[in-house]
Protein backbone atom coordinates (compact mmCIF):
# COMPACT_ATOMS: atom_id res chain seq x y z
CA UNK A 1 0.00 0.00 0.00
CA UNK A 2 2.19 2.74 1.30
CA UNK A 3 5.92 3.36 1.30
CA UNK A 4 8.02 1.11 3.53
CA UNK A 5 10.19 3.12 5.95
CA UNK A 6 13.35 2.17 7.81
CA UNK A 7 13.09 2.39 11.60
CA UNK A 8 15.74 2.14 14.31
CA UNK A 9 14.95 1.90 18.00
CA UNK A 10 16.01 0.04 21.09
CA UNK A 11 13.86 -3.03 21.82
CA UNK A 12 14.22 -4.69 25.22
CA UNK A 13 17.79 -3.46 25.46
CA UNK A 14 18.85 -4.39 21.96
CA UNK A 15 19.41 -1.94 19.10
CA UNK A 16 16.91 -2.92 16.44
CA UNK A 17 16.48 -1.87 12.81
CA UNK A 18 13.44 -2.85 10.78
CA UNK A 19 11.38 -1.59 7.87
CA UNK A 20 7.70 -0.85 8.41
CA UNK A 21 4.70 0.62 6.67
CA UNK A 22 3.97 4.06 8.12
CA UNK A 23 0.44 2.96 9.03
CA UNK A 24 1.65 0.00 11.10
CA UNK A 25 1.05 0.38 14.83
CA UNK A 26 3.60 -0.63 17.43
CA UNK A 27 1.28 -3.46 18.46
CA UNK A 28 1.04 -4.79 14.90
CA UNK A 29 4.77 -4.54 14.40
CA UNK A 30 5.52 -6.36 17.63
CA UNK A 31 3.05 -9.14 17.04
CA UNK A 32 3.30 -9.69 13.30
CA UNK A 33 6.77 -8.55 12.25
CA UNK A 34 8.80 -9.24 15.38
CA UNK A 35 6.79 -12.23 16.61
CA UNK A 36 6.53 -10.83 20.11
CA UNK A 37 2.95 -11.83 20.83
CA UNK A 38 3.05 -11.26 24.58
CA UNK A 39 1.67 -7.79 23.90
CA UNK A 40 -2.00 -8.61 23.37
CA UNK A 41 -4.53 -6.42 21.59
CA UNK A 42 -8.02 -6.19 23.05
CA UNK A 43 -9.60 -3.19 21.35
CA UNK A 44 -7.29 -1.33 18.91
CA UNK A 45 -9.02 1.78 20.24
CA UNK A 46 -6.72 2.75 23.09
CA UNK A 47 -9.32 1.82 25.70
CA UNK A 48 -8.46 -1.51 27.29
CA UNK A 49 -4.73 -1.22 27.92
CA UNK A 50 -3.97 -4.89 27.18
CA UNK A 51 -1.24 -3.78 24.77
CA UNK A 52 0.58 -1.54 27.25
CA UNK A 53 4.33 -1.27 26.58
CA UNK A 54 6.98 1.04 28.01
CA UNK A 55 8.41 3.76 25.75
CA UNK A 56 11.23 5.82 27.28
CA UNK A 57 10.06 4.82 30.74
CA UNK A 58 6.40 5.71 30.24
CA UNK A 59 3.53 3.21 29.85
CA UNK A 60 2.03 3.60 26.38
CA UNK A 61 -0.75 1.80 24.49
CA UNK A 62 0.92 0.07 21.60
CA UNK A 63 -2.27 0.04 19.52
CA UNK A 64 -2.44 3.83 19.26
CA UNK A 65 1.22 4.53 18.56
CA UNK A 66 2.61 4.20 15.05
CA UNK A 67 5.77 2.14 14.79
CA UNK A 68 7.55 4.99 12.98
CA UNK A 69 7.04 7.15 16.08
CA UNK A 70 9.54 4.91 17.87
CA UNK A 71 12.52 6.25 15.90
CA UNK A 72 15.46 6.59 18.30
CA UNK A 73 13.38 5.69 21.34
CA UNK A 74 13.54 2.84 23.81
CA UNK A 75 10.72 0.24 23.79
CA UNK A 76 10.26 -2.42 26.43
CA UNK A 77 7.69 -5.20 26.30
CA UNK A 78 6.47 -7.97 28.55
CA UNK A 79 8.97 -10.36 26.98
CA UNK A 80 11.92 -8.14 27.90
CA UNK A 81 10.66 -7.44 31.41
CA UNK A 82 10.04 -11.14 32.03
CA UNK A 83 13.46 -12.09 30.70
CA UNK A 84 15.55 -9.57 32.64
CA UNK A 85 13.85 -10.47 35.92
CA UNK A 86 12.73 -6.92 36.66
CA UNK A 87 9.09 -7.91 37.21
CA UNK A 88 9.67 -11.02 39.29
CA UNK A 89 7.96 -9.56 42.35
CA UNK A 90 4.95 -8.60 40.25
CA UNK A 91 4.77 -12.00 38.58
CA UNK A 92 4.88 -13.80 41.91
CA UNK A 93 2.30 -11.52 43.47
CA UNK A 94 -0.05 -11.95 40.49
CA UNK A 95 0.09 -15.73 40.90
CA UNK A 96 -0.23 -15.64 44.70
CA UNK A 97 -3.20 -13.26 44.66
CA UNK A 98 -4.89 -15.12 41.78
CA UNK A 99 -4.83 -11.96 39.70
CA UNK A 100 -4.65 -14.06 36.54
CA UNK A 101 -7.65 -15.87 35.10
CA UNK A 102 -7.72 -15.97 31.31
CA UNK A 103 -4.48 -13.99 31.25
CA UNK A 104 -5.28 -11.89 28.20
CA UNK A 105 -5.04 -8.56 30.03
CA UNK A 106 -2.21 -9.72 32.29
CA UNK A 107 0.73 -8.51 30.19
CA UNK A 108 -0.79 -5.05 30.06
CA UNK A 109 -1.33 -4.85 33.82
CA UNK A 110 2.19 -6.16 34.53
CA UNK A 111 3.81 -3.65 32.18
CA UNK A 112 1.66 -0.80 33.52
CA UNK A 113 2.61 -1.66 37.09
CA UNK A 114 6.27 -2.18 36.21
CA UNK A 115 6.52 1.30 34.72
CA UNK A 116 4.86 2.82 37.78
CA UNK A 117 7.02 0.94 40.30
CA UNK A 118 10.18 1.87 38.42
CA UNK A 119 9.38 5.55 38.34
CA UNK A 120 8.22 5.63 41.98
CA UNK A 121 9.17 2.71 44.20
CA UNK A 122 7.37 4.46 47.07
CA UNK A 123 4.06 4.69 45.25
CA UNK A 124 1.13 4.85 47.70
CA UNK A 125 -1.65 2.25 47.75
CA UNK A 126 -4.18 4.87 46.62
CA UNK A 127 -2.01 5.71 43.64
CA UNK A 128 -1.78 2.02 42.80
CA UNK A 129 -5.57 1.75 42.89
CA UNK A 130 -5.84 4.70 40.52
CA UNK A 131 -3.14 3.26 38.28
CA UNK A 132 -4.90 -0.10 37.98
CA UNK A 133 -8.05 1.71 36.83
CA UNK A 134 -6.27 2.53 33.57
CA UNK A 135 -6.69 -0.97 32.13
CA UNK A 136 -9.64 -3.31 31.68
CA UNK A 137 -9.95 -6.83 33.04
CA UNK A 138 -13.10 -8.89 32.49
CA UNK A 139 -12.25 -11.90 34.67
CA UNK A 140 -10.91 -11.00 38.08
CA UNK A 141 -13.06 -8.10 39.25
CA UNK A 142 -9.83 -6.14 39.89
CA UNK A 143 -9.50 -6.83 43.63
CA UNK A 144 -6.76 -9.45 43.14
CA UNK A 145 -4.89 -7.17 40.71
CA UNK A 146 -4.96 -4.27 43.17
CA UNK A 147 -3.71 -6.55 45.94
CA UNK A 148 -1.00 -8.05 43.76
CA UNK A 149 0.45 -4.70 42.70
CA UNK A 150 0.38 -3.42 46.30
CA UNK A 151 2.14 -6.57 47.44
CA UNK A 152 4.79 -6.34 44.73
CA UNK A 153 5.35 -2.69 45.61
CA UNK A 154 6.02 -3.68 49.22
CA UNK A 155 8.40 -6.46 48.18
CA UNK A 156 10.24 -4.11 45.84
CA UNK A 157 10.54 -1.42 48.53
CA UNK A 158 11.92 -3.93 50.99
CA UNK A 159 14.53 -5.00 48.47
CA UNK A 160 15.74 -1.45 47.83
Amino acid sequence: MSQIRPLSFRLNGVDTSVTVEPRRTVAEMLRSDLRLSGTTVGCEQGSCGSCTVIVDGEPVRACTLFAVQLEGRELRTIEGLARDGSIQALQEAFVEEDAVQCGFCTSGFLVLAAAALESDPFIEDEAIDALVSANLCRCTGYGPIRRAVRKAAKTTRRAT
Binding site: S32, G38, T40, I78, E79, A82, V100, G103, T106, S107
Partner: peptide, 21 residues
Protein backbone atom coordinates in the same frame (compact mmCIF):
# COMPACT_ATOMS: atom_id res chain seq x y z
CA UNK B 1 -3.41 -23.60 45.90
CA UNK B 2 -1.94 -21.30 43.24
CA UNK B 3 -3.24 -22.01 39.77
CA UNK B 4 -1.04 -24.09 37.50
CA UNK B 5 -2.08 -22.12 34.42
CA UNK B 6 -0.62 -18.81 35.55
CA UNK B 7 3.06 -19.21 34.78
CA UNK B 8 3.08 -18.65 30.98
CA UNK B 9 0.49 -15.93 31.32
CA UNK B 10 2.63 -13.73 33.59
CA UNK B 11 5.53 -13.96 31.13
CA UNK B 12 3.79 -13.02 27.89
CA UNK B 13 3.90 -16.61 26.69
CA UNK B 14 0.17 -17.17 26.33
CA UNK B 15 -0.87 -18.82 23.07
CA UNK B 16 -4.01 -16.88 22.27
CA UNK B 17 -5.54 -17.27 18.83
CA UNK B 18 -3.91 -14.14 17.49
CA UNK B 19 -0.51 -15.31 18.69
CA UNK B 20 -0.53 -18.50 16.66
CA UNK B 21 -0.35 -17.19 13.12
Amino acid sequence: LPRLEASPLVSGRGLFTGSMQ
